[in-house]
Design a protein around this nucleic acid. Structure first.
Length: 554
RNA sequence: GCGCUUGUAGCUCAAUUGGAUAGAGCGUAGCCCUGCGGAGGCUAAGGUCGCGGGUUCGAGUCCCGCCAAGCGCGCCA
């Protein structure tokens, strides 16, 4: 619809130039938008204000000239007016919106999808938590965001891959193995000292118990190094399986689980280092090998091989990101916890060094989650092991509520997650508001069937009957959905869809309260049934993009 | 100390990416079922958009300076 308006304006500008009314030596990038205020029409353009400096006329005067060339040119536009500082407001004829109806009807489940992604390969990497402990709420936020974003991008025509990077190399893994080993010995009544820095959570003891069940005492009889090596492997794969289960329960499925170990086994880490050396971007100093990240805007250079000869995690990440792009992704999106933000310049530096275009890489930082219960903070200390796991949250409040709460907020703002509020199946909890709307419509459709009013197609209805202000607003709102989806994809902001759904369902609920859908008048009943079925379809599509179910009954 | 992010109604959050009179929910005060789902609807009160400058036709949005909160600033991951 915007496109049609844009064409009208462009044509008018051409006509003005031809008639010598305006110079338009340089056409500014103007905006067409749906004004907040209904009195300002269906669309507004700011072209006249932008043109004012070069035309040396007042914006309103220019607007008047342009409007003169638009008036009566199209059946779509019923009225054009000049308002405010020089906006050109377009009022559309009611029939203009019917196109949106038909699109919705034809596309059904695909309504809202688009081809703006042009089939480009995009990777979204998210969660990527170390397999040293269960996922917590913060990971849940990243999971909901990454998963929804991936779905939305796919809907917008990108070829999307979801990837989880498994950090299964390094000191933290050894710490995990040692933690389990010590708890194991402890359970077998050996004297132990449990040092700081190891994992204290109860889940470590659970793993140790499982080891005893499966393998008995045998690790007390073998050399410590051998036992540690086995237990590290055993524990991390056990934890990783737990993570996979949790994510599945949360409705998240990855296409690829990428293991850091593989980078070493295939020699990717070594070859990355070689490449940096060859480009003179790495140098030796104090017995370590440094990467010249300062050349790319970082605060200081960073170590990639330590004095003791081991590589840093940074070395792995260089290799990993290099490897990602070698797989042909046009766009790589990493979702990180905000506590890693200091890491962004480093990785950007790496990519620049490797000759990867800056805009091919996006980092989305997801801010912390403050877990509350009835307004009071819940202790979340990883070291002491006192934290609420994602699994517990899902069990307590449900997948849909948790996901929706994460996805109604922008990712770069901190989020208060109150378990008591999330659990309430009412007012304070918007997910039920949206789902309830969907269920309500399904129920009306079922009722209509009972009354022998079957679900109509566009040809069956008289759209002119949908003339109340509420109905007109709903029709427009439905037509906006595709733009909301593509905007959400391009800005990597899934929350826009959640907000839109709450607005749409709000319109529906008040419409429902004011007008009766199924009455004695068949023509009116059919038209209204058609309208609310359109709402149902959009609610369902929108919820699907967020990974939230759209129940027919609740 | 330096850097990143945030600051909008009593609370939790939006605001079409620079647009016209800043909006929802909760909470508060009232009200609405003889009708398809009351997990709903209607009305009211509630704002110095952290503070101060600047940019321009126009700023919650961009720039600068303060203030506050969170997070970073390792040859840890």
């Amino acid at each position: 619809m915007k496109q049609i308006i844009r064409e009208l304006i462009d044509q008018a500008l051409g006509a003005c130039r031809q008639d010598g009314l305006l110079r338009v030596s340089e056409q500014p990038a103007y905006v067409i938008e749906a004004p907040r205020n209904k009195d300002h029409g269906d669309f507004a353009a700011n072209i006249a204000m932008l043109l004012a400096p070069q035309e040396k006329k007042s914006p309103r005067e220019i607007a008047q000239i342009i409007a003169g060339k638009i008036e009566g040119k199209s059946a779509v536009v019923s009225r054009v007016e000049i308002a405010g500082p020089g906006f050109i407001n377009f009022h559309l004829s009611p029939g203009a919106w019917y196109a949106g109806f038909q699109e919705l009807e034809v596309q059904g489940d695909r309504f809202g999808s688009s081809g703006i992604g042009k089939g480009e390969k995009v990777q979204v990497e998210f969660v990527s938590a170390n397999p040293t402990g269960p996922l917590h709420v913060g990971h849940g936020r990243g999971a909901a965001l990454g998963d929804a974003l991936a779905t939305i991008l796919a809907f917008a025509g990108y070829d999307v891959q979801r990837e989880y990077y498994i950090n299964n190399v390094g000191i933290q893994m050894q710490n995990l193995g040692r933690s389990v080993y010590l708890r194991y010995l402890e359970l077998l009544k050996k004297e132990i000292v449990f040092p700081d820095g190891l994992y204290r959570g109860d889940y470590i003891i659970d793993i140790a118990k499982e080891v005893i069940l499966k393998y008995g005492k045998r690790f007390t009889e073998m050399p410590e190094a051998e036992a540690l090596s086995f237990l590290t492997e055993f524990s991390s794969s056990l934890i990783l399986n737990g993570i996979k289960d949790d994510l599945e329960q949360f409705g998240v499925q990855f296409d690829n689980w990428f293991s850091e170990k593989v980078l070493f086994e295939r020699g990717d880490v070594q070859s990355s280092i070689d490449e940096l050396k060859a480009k003179d971007l790495a140098y030796e100093h104090d017995g370590a090998l440094w990467f010249r990240t300062t050349s790319f805007g970082d605060e200081k250079d960073r170590v990639i091989i330590k004095e003791d000869g081991n590589t840093t995690y940074f070395a792995s990440d260089i290799a990993y990101h290099r490897e990602k792009f070698s797989r042909g992704f046009k766009q790589v999106i990493d979702i990180w916890g905000a506590d890693h933000h200091g890491y962004v310049p480093r990785i950007r530096g790496v990519l620049t060094a490797l000759g990867i275009p800056e805009d091919a890489f996006t980092v989305i930082l997801v801010q912390m989650v403050n877990l509350l219960r009835g307004g009071k903070p819940v202790a979340m200390s990883t070291r002491s092991g006192e934290f609420v796991t994602l699994r517990e949250v899902i069990q307590e409040v449900g997948k849909d509520a948790a996901r929706f709460i994460f996805l109604t907020r922008r990712s770069d703002a901190q989020l208060d997650f109150d378990l008591e509020v999330a659990k309430k199946q009412s007012d304070e909890n918007p997910v039920y508001y949206v789902q309830y709307g969907h269920a309500r419509i399904c129920s009306i459709i079922a009722y209509a069937q009972e009354k022998n009013v079957s679900l109509p197609v566009f040809q069956d209805i008289d759209p002119g009957l949908l003339s109340s202000p509420e109905e007109q607003e709903i029709i427009k709102k439905l037509a906006q959905f595709p733009e909301v989806v593509s905007g959400s994809a391009q800005s990597c902001e899934p929350h826009r869809i959640a907000i839109y759904l709450m607005e749409l369902v709000g319109q529906f609920h008040s419409y429902y309260a004011k007008y009766r859908v199924i009455t004695e008048e068949l023509a009116m009943s059919t038209a209204r049934l058609y309208l609310i079925n359109g709402i149902r379809c959009v609610l369902k599509n929108g919820l699907a993009l967020l990974g939230v179910t759209a129940p027919e009954k609740m």
